[in-house]
Amino acid sequence: MAEVHAEMVANVWKIVVSEGDVVDEGDTLVILESMKMEIPVLSEDPGTVTKIQVKEGDVVQEGDLIAVVE
């Protein structure tokens, strides 16, 4: 199981995957917005998305849980 955490303070701009989706290493899970930039959050491992902890419009802090890939 791999937990994906926010690496910086950001707004959640777009949720790209849904719970249950199968993803590969490097696939975009969620796109954040910060520093005038769209910042993709990538899966570090192949697996199934079992949880998406955020919704569009949320503000995430550094270290917050974004998703779980198993």
Binding site: E7, M8, M37, E38, P40
Partner: peptide, 8 residues
């Protein structure tokens, strides 16, 4: 690399 952390 803008793909990671926006390139910050």
């Amino acid at each position: 690399n803008p793909m990671r952390l926006g390139g910050c």
